[in-house]
C-alpha cells in the first residue's frame, strides 16, 4: 500500500468517528434518567447542593455546547471525568482495556487453534463422519447463547470438577507487577512461570466461552476455502506431478486456504472486543465491556462516550489490518 492510499484511508476515518460520537451523544441525551438524581438517591439535597453537583459533573451547559466541548477535548486526548470514579475517563478505561484485549486475543487463539485444523481436516475428509461431527460442532458453537454456555462451564468445571476458578484474572498468592498490563505477558517477563500457569487457568473458561462461536465461524470459513483450493488447477497439477501430498498441502493449499480465515478472524476480533460484556460479567473479568454496560445503566455519559469512540477506532483499525493481511497473504490483490 502506498502512502497516499494510506492517508486516504485515514481521512475516511474522520467522518465515521464524528458520526459515531454524535449518534452516541444524542442517544445518551435522549435517554431518560438523570445522573444527578441517581447519585443523590434517597438522601435529602438542597437545590444548591443539586446545582453544585450538576456543575461539578459538567451537566449545567446546553446540550450542543456539551457535545462541542467533548469534541474539542477529545482531540487533545481528554475525555472528561467519570461521574462515579471521579477520575479521568481515559485512565479508567486504560485500566480495563488490557484485560479485555487479553481475553479477546486468547479467545481468538483458542478459536484459531481449534478451527483451522478442524476445518482443514473436515475439507480433506469431506463427507466423512469426521466432517459431519466437525460441522455439527461448529453449528452448535454458533447456536449457543454465550451466557448460558458460560454458566454451564462454571457449573461443570469450577463447581463440580473444581478444575478451574470461577472469577478473576489471577489468584492472590502471586504478585505480578504490571509491565504491559497483559497478565500472560507480564508473568513471562517476570519469569514467574507458576503465575503464568495460574493465569492460564483463570483465563481458560472465559476464553473458551468467548472463543467458541468464533471457532465455529472460522471452521466453516476454513473448510469452505480449503475445499475450493483443493479443486484448484495448481493443486491438481501438483498432484499429477507426483509431489508428496504433505508438500502440496503445506506449500500450496494451506497458505491459500487461510486467506479468508485470517481476514474474517481480524474482522471478527472486533466483535469479540465489543461483544464480551456478558462473558466478563459472568466470569468477574475486569474488562471494559462490563464497565461500559454498567455505565449505560447509571448514565455515566463521559465514559460511555469515550468507550464508543474507542470501539469505533478499533473497528476501523481491524478492518484495516484485515485488508493488509489479505494483501500480504495474497499478493495478487492490490489495495
Amino acid at each position: 500500500m502506498n502512502p497516499a492510499k494510506f492517508f486516504q484511508r485515514l481521512l475516511q476515518l474522520a467522518p465515521v468517528l464524528l458520526g459515531v460520537s454524535f449518534i452516541a451523544f444524542m442517544m445518551l441525551a435522549m435517554t431518560p434518567g438523570d445522573p444527578v438524581a441517581l447519585i443523590i438517591g434517597e438522601h435529602a439535597a438542597t437545590p444548591e447542593q443539586i446545582e453544585t453537583l450538576r456543575r461539578d459533573l459538567g451537566l449545567n451547559q446546553p446540550l450542543l455546547q456539551r457535545f462541542a466541548s467533548f469534541l474539542a477535548d477529545a482531540v487533545t486526548g481528554n475525555f472528561g471525568t467519570s461521574f462515579y470514579h471521579r477520575r479521568p475517563v481515559a485512565e479508567v478505561i486504560g485500566e480495563r482495556l488490557p484485560a479485555t484485549i487479553e481475553l479477546s486475543l486468547v479467545a481468538l487463539i483458542v478459536a484459531l487453534v481449534t478451527s483451522i485444523p478442524l476445518g482443514v481436516l473436515a475439507a480433506i475428509r469431506k463427507n466423512t463422519i469426521f466432517d459431519r461431527i466437525a460441522t455439527l460442532f461448529s453449528l452448535v458453537g454458533v447456536s449457543m447463547p454465550g451466557f448460558w454456555l458460560g454458566i454451564l462451564l462454571i457449573m461443570i468445571f469450577a463447581v463440580n470438577l473444581q478444575l478451574f476458578p470461577v472469577a478473576g484474572r489471577i489468584g492472590f498468592s502471586h504478585e505480578v507487577d504490571p509491565i504491559t498490563g497483559f497478565m500472560l505477558i507480564d508473568t513471562l517477563l517476570h519469569r514467574n512461570f507458576a503465575a503464568f500457569g495460574e493465569t492460564l487457568r483463570y483465563i481458560a473458561l472465559p476464553a473458551v466461552t468467548l472463543g467458541l462461536p468464533m471457532a465455529a465461524i472460522l471452521m466453516r470459513v476454513t473448510r469452505t476455502s480449503m475445499l475450493e483450493v483443493l479443486q484448484q488447477d495448481y493443486v491438481t497439477f501438483a498432484n499429477a506431478k507426483g509431489l508428496k501430498p504433505r508438500r502440496i498441502f503445506f506449500r500450496h493449499a494451506l497458505k491459500n486456504a487461510l486467506i479468508p480465515t485470517v481476514s474474517v478472524a481480524a474482522i471478527e476480533t472486533g466483535s469479540l472486543l465489543g461483544g464480551n460484556m456478558i462473558v466478563e460479567t459472568i466470569f468477574g473479568w475486569p474488562g471494559l465491556g462490563r464497565l461500559v454496560v454498567e455505565s449505560i445503566f447509571v448514565r455515566n455519559y463521559p465514559l460511555v462516550q469515550a468507550a464508543v469512540l474507542l470501539y469505533a477506532v478499533t473497528y476501523v483499525l481491524l478492518n484495516f489490518i484485515a485488508d493488509i493481511l489479505y494483501t500480504l497473504l495474497n499478493p495478487r490483490v492490490k489495495l
Partner: peptide, 17 residues
C-alpha cells in the same frame, strides 16, 4: 474479589474460591 453475577458468586463459594 468482584463477582457481579449472582450465580457465579454462589458457584465461587461452593467451589471454595
Amino acid at each position: 474479589r468482584t463477582i457481579p453475577e449472582t450465580a457465579s458468586r454462589v458457584a465461587a463459594l461452593l467451589s471454595g474460591d
